[in-house]
Design a binder for these strands. Structure first.
Lengths: 357, 357
DNA sequence: CCGGAAGTTGACAGCGTTGTCACCGCCGCC
DNA sequence: GGCGGCGGTGACAACGCTGTCAACTTCCGG
């Protein structure tokens, strides 16, 4: 009745000795071979119900934990999924992580993270190193690196399957999940138009992000459908940052000829616009409606609370992990990867109302 | 000249065939045994310089990547560090992740994350499962779960070494890194006193967080050292949330008898106070100075920008990872674990100024 | 010039699991 | 009634690396 015994350095301190059950111990306990234990644990077919239960009982009795390293070395799966991200927004990344982990946990997978700078010189090296040494079963990519051709090439050259979240280009290249930014921006603009606004300012996003273009298109389309001609001086460039939003606000709100509403391409810039309005003693929403995009926590942490567009990020990330775990992200007809568009959520809060004039 | 060849499912699509070099390939290429290659790669002593270089050259030539699973299975290290966190603040967690990963990368370690809910029924199970199956070399714990006795017990019972970030209790139990919350709160209060404020409101933090108590103590001590008696009605309970800060502001700012400055125990609550002031047309900082704590991104994303206390979170997390990687977190004299206090940073921005009356 | 210590290297046995293949018995079919 | 097939099981060889130990070299001091 020998069991694998291991002595940890920490035990030398406490004097406790630990036992870590291996698959061999479980097999002995259940009176079967290790291969049969393996079959049960991997839910393989062709195991008698009676045998399965005996194994499961033995496994529970010994508090058996499979050794991922051994599984990975012997088998073809590592049970590890990598999440690569630049750091656009902590709140966004946090949601992606929680969504992905929740799906991973269901299948005994774990998530490793690799924060990287999109402009890092050795981006490819970091990616390749992580994927190769960890033998990742799959990789999840967030914007903006999900559109970095170098990263995609590296992943493909080492044969890793990956899912892109909200990619902008080459959607036929690999699996992805995303949202319809154009439709969302159009919906928000419609909301402002419905309130009675006709003179609406727009703050563009960072030109490198694909979403910026789509959001602007949605804005313009909404105007077009109501027969409103966009005024060039109502559309100003921003960079997704609070400061750029503040500056855009300063520009749009200078003078008496100002819009009655401003739609910023993300929440941080919307907050910047609100700050600019506050500075100029323009009351939000009474004298100016402000709308954002993303529904970051800050949108609720500000007064008045921001009307914005929410994305089901947790769900998107969970589906991304799912595509990897099920293998759908790997096996698909060339040029036709699985992709899924999620619904956005227009959240009307206190920063938008009918125009006062 | 055979090399290990592996065919990936993805290659069936592209027709490419991949070669993954193993330590055996490197050994053959360099004309030495695999053990010698292993020695070089692990920086073990007693290898001739000439041999070392030959191995390194061969390794580079074949673009060799060690297989972590194999290393972990054969050796005693998994090169994996786990980060367990509840989700108090995405910005905080994001900094912890970046700090820890930066140190990990230096030593070929990787970080796995386990977001958990502090009140999850099976918290212990999740922790135990992750540590056991992944064979984590170490674990990093953030508040509030770094103070959860169940988690600490599980980690100790499976013999995992861990480092706590900003623990509140039982600091003699395991390695930790932290900051002096009391001194920081005192410094912030001194800043307000130095500006000339004598009537300062204080918003307490969540009673379950140890930091709340320390911050209040620092506030009171600063007053005491100037001989100022604290007024009970100037100290109100908060819960670290924006809303609770807003409500605290409403309470403190009602009526003409109001403080000239308010120090909130964290940034979210300070923002709530600012929102309340804005609603009541009390100008910040002209008519009311507001100070926060934590230096979250929102502190800069608001107008006026918030005076607050910053913590070197990246550095703290990096040191936490370092303690794990070097083994200092594991081997220490009983009752005397390594611990380190980091300097805080008082960041004066626009939300505080001299009192107008 | 010799004995021993220190430096340098390799053979080999695992580490805990999965993949392959063989085996045994039972069923249904001609 | 023999035979092919399949459900159920186990023996055994990997997987790629590290730990152990032994062997061989080199370098000293006496």
């Amino acid at each position: 009745m020998r069991q694998s015994r291991r002595l940890w350095a920490a035990d030398l301190r406490t004097g406790t000795e630990l036992t870590t059950a291996t698959i061999t111990d479980v097999a002995r306990e259940a009176g079967v071979s290790i291969k049969t234990v393996s079959r049960v644990l991997n839910r393989e077919p062709n195991v008698r119900e009676e045998t399965r239960e005996a194994v499961l009982a033995a496994s529970r009795a010994l508090n058996y934990r499979p050794n991922l390293s051994a599984r990975s070395l012997a088998g073809s799966r590592s049970f590890l999924i990598g999440l690569f991200f630049d750091n656009p927004s902590p709140a966004y990344v946090s949601d992606v992580q929680r969504g992905a982990v929740s799906r991973c946990r269901e299948s005994g997978y774990h998530l490793t993270i690799e924060p990287v700078a999109a402009d890092a010189v050795d981006l490819e090296g970091v990616v390749e190193q992580a994927v190769s040494t960890l033998r990742l079963d799959g990789v999840i990519l967030t914007p903006p690196i999900c559109d970095d051709p170098r990263v995609l090439s590296v992943l493909e050259s080492v044969g890793a399957s990956y899912v892109r979240i909200a990619p902008d280009r080459e959607k036929g290249r690999a699996a992805w999940v995303g949202m319809d930014d154009r439709a969302a921006a159009q919906a928000m603009t419609d909301h402002l138009l419905d309130l009675g606004h006709v003179d609406i300012g727009f703050v563009k996003g960072h030109p490198d992000h694909g979403a910026s273009r789509l959001r602007q298109e949605g804005f313009l389309q909404a105007l077009a459908e109501r027969g409103i001609a966009p005024r060039d001086d109502r559309i100003v460039q921003g960079w997704f940052s609070f400061r750029s939003g503040f500056e855009a606000g300063e520009r749009l709100l200078a003078g008496a000829d100002r819009p009655t509403a401003i739609f910023a391409s993300n929440d941080d810039m919307a907050l910047g616009v609100m700050a600019s309005a506050t500075r100029r003693r323009i009351a939000v929403p009474e004298d100016l409606s402000v709308a954002g995009f993303d529904d970051t926590p800050a949108a609720r942490t500000v007064w008045p609370q921001l009307t914005t567009i929410g994305q089901p990020i947790l769900e998107m990330a969970a589906v991304a992990a799912d595509l990897l775990i099920t293998g759908e992200a790997r096996d698909f007809p060339a040029g036709h990867p699985p992709g899924r568009v999620f619904d956005f959520c227009l959240t009307v809060r206190d920063s938008t109302t009918r125009p006062s004039r």
